[in-house]
């Protein structure tokens, strides 16, 4: 049975959904999912990884791992690869995964398929598809040479399985070698809001220039508030006008998102905006101009005034979600 080594990520004491997705895919395909968990005082999370389907957890702990750094985490991860000898390595295409994965690939002398939107494990083969040219094209990835097949995967590309609360993973403690580290993480400054990032959200509600001011974004925040696992995003026009900070920007020069549902409110659909959201599974556009280019990409379109539609939609979503 092929082994898949999965880099576990967590935030505020909770394993991230992307990690669950990766473990679930490995388990579904009949691989043995082994999770790599690093940090300081994180041993309790090993149980959660077991519930997600990990058979084994490689646990590395120490003060040098209190904050993520590519150097300390990279060193520990490479050690884990050498001891586990996996056929497949998976990380989330998150801030950490994107920073870390190439370092690991360089050290091991293997290839890396980054930022994949489709991943499937078949036997011991990793099949990946990734967007290129800002999503204007897609390509399959072929790995040359021997060694593990390695990919980073965009959040929300894979489905998660149900948690098995009674399942547990065998934990192996890996010693930490924190000698000769060059870089130091001085501080981690949390964003003003502890909100979910647009890149991780399952549903993104974005506003454009039509929002007119930052106060009106409260309408979108209210809509987002009724949708679990959702976040608010913005077009560049809205960011440039100062309605929202740059960390909200979706598009070519902002974040690239692939949520299950993307709701564009008062966004025209410029090519640079589409570059950031075209891989979303379902796209909804609310725009008062029936000719707006966003409608060409939208699965569902509402021609109308967002100031009228959005509050009503918030009410309707509440009703639909309340039925459970």
């Amino acid at each position: 049975m092929a082994t898949a080594l999965i880099y576990a990520e967590y935030k505020d004491g909770k394993i991230k959904k992307i990690t669950h997705e990766l473990i679930a895919e490995a388990a579904r395909s009949g691989c043995e999912p082994v999770a790599f968990l690093a940090g300081a005082g994180v041993e309790a999370l090993a149980k959660d990884l077991g519930a997600m389907g990990a058979k084994r957890v490689i646990l590395v702990q120490g003060d040098a791992l209190k904050f993520y750094s590519n150097e300390a985490y990279g060193k520990a991860f490479v050690e884990a690869v050498k001891s586990v000898n996996p056929a497949i390595i998976l990380m989330g295409a998150s801030a950490q995964g994107k920073d870390l994965a190439p370092r690991v690939a360089a050290t091991l002398g293997i290839g890396l398929a980054s930022d994949c939107t489709k991943v499937k494990i078949e036997g011991d083969k990793l099949k990946c598809t990734r967007p290129i040219y800002a999503g204007k094209a897609l390509a399959d990835v072929e790995f040359a040479g021997s060694g593990p097949q390695f990919a980073t995967v965009r959040p929300n590309a894979l489905s998660v399985g149900a948690l098995q609360e009674d399942a547990s993973a065998a934990v192996t403690n890996q010693p930490l070698d924190a000698s000769a580290l060059k870089s130091v993480v001085k501080d981690v400054v949390r964003g003003a809001t502890a909100k979910l990032d647009v890149t991780e959200a399952n549903i993104v509600v974005s506003g454009g220039r039509a929002m007119k001011n930052s106060e009106n974004f409260a309408l979108l925040e209210a809509l987002s508030a009724v949708l679990p696992n959702s976040a608010v995003g913005a077009s560049r026009a809205a960011v440039d006008a100062g309605y929202r900070p740059h960390s909200y920007q979706v598009g070519q020069t902002g974040k690239v998102v692939s949520p299950t549902l993307y709701i564009a409110c008062g966004i025209s659909g410029a090519i640079q905006h589409l570059a950031g959201m075209r891989t979303s599974k379902v796209i909804v556009a609310i725009n008062k101009d029936p000719e707006a280019p966003i409608f060409q990409l939208a699965d569902y379109g509402i021609v109308g005034d967002l100031f009228e539609v959005v509050p009503l939609l918030t009410e309707e979503f509440k009703k639909v979600l309340g039925e459970h």
Partner: peptide, 14 residues
């Protein structure tokens, strides 16, 4: 360095 959710990391290196 910019990470998710408007969070930043301050990193010193030689």
């Amino acid at each position: 360095r910019e990470v998710e959710g408007g969070t930043t990391e301050i990193i010193a290196m030689p």
